[in-house]
Amino acid sequence: MRFPWSRPREGTGWSWQSNQGLVAIPIVLVLVITVADVLSPPDVHLGPLLVVAPALTASFGSSRLTALIGILATGALFTIAAVRNSIFTSNHESQLVALIVISVFTVFFCRLRERHNTELKQVRSVAEAAQEVVLHPLPERIGPLSVAFLYEAAADQARIGGDLYAAVRTRGGTRLLIGDVRGKGLMALDDADLLLGAFRSAAHRELPLEALQAELDAVVTWGLAQPNRHGHDAEESFITGALIDVPDHEPRISILNSGHPAPLRLRDGRVTMLSPRRYAPPFGIPLPQDPGAAPDVYDFAPGDLLLLYTDGVTEARDTAGDFYPLAERLPDIVPGGMHPFDLLTVLREDLLRHASGSLGDDAAVVAVRRDIPGRPRTV
């Protein structure tokens, strides 16, 4: 797939393939300690230091490898005792017993960690599969538009996010949706599926954006009021979102924003925030429809690029606690005329660099460019 779609990252444990060289460290330690003990004076005992070998192995190796290093260390201690002719002394017997006990406990806890990592991997796999069923990949091209999308999972990948996006083709254009569900977990995923399903079934009917927003809001409000939902989080659920209508043959776009971060328009290296004159209420909040919340119309000429995003992008913090300045960063990292795929690739690298490689919340971005007629749409 030629999009910077980022699946939840695997666990923090190191793999055998990437750390084979580390196995030499405990082995070398066992050899060095053994030789040093044998060559030391009779009153100097370095054998107890052999416990470092299995303990160190547990930090990067499997329980089986840890057990093997523990056996190696025990054999080395037995060798030291044999060379010193002190196998049956209380000193070496106590050292052997202590080393065996510590090695057994180290292997036991290493095994518990492996079981935990396996369970967490299964949870992540289920979460990823469920989210990909709800979030359909966007096509690379829709009419006169080139499209790319990005979903970057937060550091806590076991929590399913509620970021969402969708695109529906109409007879004379394309309708887009970007949104963010309040909360996390399966309930947030269910809410996202509710809004996405309503959008996909209604957007192609070419209702005015005000009518489409009202219909989506009615569906979400109905879904949030169902008796199977309970608890404090359920009572305060809502979805921010933005509906975008992009006609094929007119250099403009219409945006109806329901409490969502304002989209950005990139034109000739300049970034414009498309803030609404008045926000519509978020989906799912039982308020009277605001007659003042009407779509805003903006220029969207060939070559222009529209960036839709969730607050996981702009609320990503660096080590000093500062938010990611998306609008300010784009002119510095994105040259004019960049393809949406390339833009999101660069944006993702810059975002993760700002957040030291770990986001606090899921982040979704959709980049849409109106292609110039007659110019090849190359990546």
Rank of each mutant, 00 (worst) to 15 (best):
G374E: 09
L207K: 05
F341R: 15
S40Q: 03
R278N: 08
V365H: 04
D296H: 02
T345K: 11
R124D: 13
A82C: 14
F60W: 13
Q131N: 11
F300M: 03
L305K: 05
V134Y: 07
D304T: 06
S258P: 00
P335Y: 08
Q122P: 00
W5D: 09
A55Y: 08
L216W: 05
I255P: 04
P48W: 01
A327C: 01
P137N: 05
G143D: 12
R113N: 13
P335C: 06
Q213V: 00
W14Q: 11
D163R: 09
L308C: 08
D37R: 02
V168M: 08
V181T: 00
E93M: 13
A234D: 00
Y298I: 02
P137K: 07
I25H: 00
L189S: 10
I244G: 03
T34I: 07
G185E: 09
D180P: 10
E128K: 07
N228K: 11
P281K: 10
A280K: 10
L359G: 02
A148G: 07
A24H: 01
V107W: 10
L138I: 06
Q289E: 14
L96G: 08
V44N: 02
L224R: 11
E215Y: 10
F238A: 03
L77Y: 01
F88K: 00
P137M: 09
R111H: 15
R252K: 11
D299P: 11
A36R: 05
T57E: 05
N228I: 12
L31F: 10
V368F: 03
L77A: 12
V246D: 01
L224W: 03
Q157A: 15
L96I: 06
E210V: 15
V28R: 02
G223H: 06
P291N: 01
L306F: 06
I71L: 15
I25R: 01
V246F: 10
H249R: 14
L65M: 13
I239H: 02
